[in-house]
Structures are given as structure tokens and as C-alpha cells.
Amino acid sequence: MLDKQMGYVAPDYLEQYNDDIESETILTRRQEQQAKRFEARTKPYYQAVQAVQDIQSNEFDFSGSVVKVGQADELSPEQQQRFNQTLKAFCPWKKGPFELFGTLIDAEWRSDWKWERILPHIQPLKERKVADIGCHNGYFMFRMAHQKPVCVIGFEPYAKHLWNFQLVQNIVRQEMLHFELLGVEHIDLYPDFFDTIFCLGILYHHTDPVGLLRKLHKSLKKTGEIIIDCQGIPGDLPVALTPQKRYAQARGIWFLPTQSCLENWMNRAGFTDVNCFFAEPLSTEEQRRTTWADIDSLSEFLDPTNSSLTIEGYPAPWRYYVIAHKD
């Protein structure tokens, strides 16, 4: 379906799954959030997307590390100029990489590294219903689409990221991809619904991580699986760090667990077969300043004299990737 303001909108999954989820409440929450799309602060983003709605392509490839859409020679010089202006409107690009009509967007995060770590450990996504919590600009959703899931629902409350996703979706028009301006706190409106849940880089930003894990457990089907990527700290004790104000210059970080602490959270939330398959310090090669993200990044967030500490003096970040199931 084409919408004058948004562009391409996939068929509403609420109609198909009306009896399986709390559709009326989801619709109410969705309507409450829709005004964010056209707030004054999001105006540059929706105007940027609307400026290139005439640009189409049948060429795309989600199979590799770079999400590729279109070819450079498909655009006229005038279209290329307009499209490049739209791309620049979304700087800094924090998740990627993308290649859009020949322009390579090297984002702050090497999200492809994360996906390649995860891929060998998960069940194939074909015909599965999938949740991507904190989906940002949809990089992982497009990578998931390559496996032909029946439905991918991205949860992301920030309208800038909706428009960044919409920029690509307007071109590739993937019917199985759905973006909801909702947060992880709304996931329990989908009880026993998802076959696979990805919760990547979200848990430590919330004041009640165990409560959120319980909601995620509620929304997972029996025999389903969940993949958690959580920033944390090194150590053997099952403890979590609560920064006084900022951690690595970031606000809104509440609990940074050790590996055993994260595993305990998941066990106590009801998950089974909890397995941490990746545990390493975050590197300045994975999160860094680029041309498309010309902002302070991990190098600036660490103690310049001791890279094992943040600039505030806390242990430098580790990343823990955990997979678990629901009996």
C-alpha cells in the first residue's frame, strides 16, 4: 500500500494475527505514538524521505555484510544529488553498513560483525515470526528479510529511526517488515507469539532489566528462542554496575552486568538453556568515528591512559551475547 506521507506501507499484520495478540491495545498504543512521525523535531527526516519518494529500484541484496539497494547508474545526476542530500540528513548513521545507489555508508557501529556472530547460533528464520527490539534504522531487519521470515516486527520508539527505515523500505518494499513506534515495554501485548526475539543492545538502558526479560519471556512461543546482546563489565561475580551519572559518556545506562549476572537474570526470568556464546571487550574497530558518523565514539569514551577503563573510571565495556529458550 502507498501512503502519500509515508510512502510504502506493508499490509497490516494486525489483520492477520488479530486473534493471536492484543490487537485493540496495540492499535491504541500505535495511534498514541503516530503523532511522533510529524513532530517539529522530526521534520528534517520526513521531508528528506518525501523528497526522494519518486526514486525506485528492483535491485537489492540483503545477503551480505552490506545492505545493498539500487545501482549508481539507475539515477540521473539530479536524482543522485537529491538522494545524497537525503542520506546526509540522517547523519550520524549509527547502524550499518548500507550501500544505497552506489553510496557506501560506513556507520559508527559495524552491525555486520554482530550479525555474523549471531547467525551460526540461531534457528533459520524462514517462516518464523520475529521481533527486533530496538530495531533502530532497520539494518538487522533487512538482513533478516534475506531468510524469508513470515513476519518481522521492529520495535523502536524514536521517529528519526522510523524515517531512516522508511527511506530504504520505500525502495525495497518488503511485505514481511513492520516498524512499530513502540518500546520493549509493549512486547507483552504479543503473548506466546514470536518464534524468535532479538534484543540487541537494549537491556542495560532500562531500570528494570529482569522485569523486561519477563515480558520478553511472555511474548516468546514455547520452544522459541531469544538472543540477547548486552553491554556489561568483566568479572566472575554475578553483580551489575550502576553508574552514578554517565557511563562512557552515555546517559540512560542503568545496569551493566557481568556474564554470570546476565545469565542469572535470564534464568530468573524463566528462560532455559541459557548459553553465552560470545564474551569479549568492545573494540574501537567495532564502534568508531566515520565519515557518515562524525561524532565522538568509543575511542573518546575510554581513559586515554588506560583503555581498560572508561573516561569516568569504570571498567571498560564488554559485550555478552546470550541465547536461550522457552519450555
Rank of each mutant, 00 (worst) to 15 (best):
L189E: 08
K4E: 07
L14V: 03
N275T: 14
L213T: 01
Y247T: 06
T42Y: 13
Q259V: 14
V130L: 04
A248I: 09
D20K: 15
T223I: 11
P317Y: 01
K126S: 10
L298V: 13
V152F: 04
M1H: 14
I295H: 06
R289F: 12
I122V: 05
N264E: 15
G134A: 02
E156R: 01
E280C: 00
Y139C: 14
S299C: 09
L189F: 12
K218E: 13
Q56P: 03
E24M: 15
A48H: 04
F271N: 05
E22K: 15
E99R: 02
D112K: 08
D73Y: 13
I171Y: 01
R319V: 04
S308C: 05
Q174I: 13
G313S: 04
I295G: 02
K126H: 12
I227E: 04
D3I: 02
N275K: 14
P191Y: 03
E24P: 14
F165L: 08
E300W: 01
Q79L: 13
I295N: 05
T103S: 08
F193S: 10
Q33E: 15
Q174L: 13
Q244T: 15
M144R: 10
L241C: 02
L200M: 10
N18V: 11
V210W: 12
Q47D: 12
D106G: 08
E263S: 11
E99T: 04
S65M: 13
P44E: 00
S23I: 08
K245A: 07
G252V: 07
L125T: 00
M144W: 09
L216S: 04
Y320L: 00
V67G: 08
G96M: 09
H217P: 02
L14E: 07
F90I: 13
D19K: 11
Q31P: 02
D192T: 12
I202W: 00
W113S: 13
L100P: 01
K160P: 10
Q33T: 15
P315W: 01
L302P: 06
V210I: 15
A48T: 03
Q50I: 00
T42Q: 13
N137E: 09
N267M: 11
Q31E: 08
Q50K: 01
K148V: 04
E74N: 01
E285R: 14
F193I: 10
K114F: 03
F193A: 09
D296G: 13
P92L: 09
I21T: 07
Y321G: 07
D273Y: 09
R173T: 11
N164R: 15
H325P: 00
V66C: 07
R110V: 05
S63H: 12
F101K: 06
D296T: 11
H178Y: 12
L241W: 02
D195K: 14
Q56H: 10
G235K: 05
R143G: 03
F198A: 00
L309T: 01
I202T: 02
A145E: 05
E225G: 11
I228W: 04
S57N: 02
Y45N: 04
S65E: 13
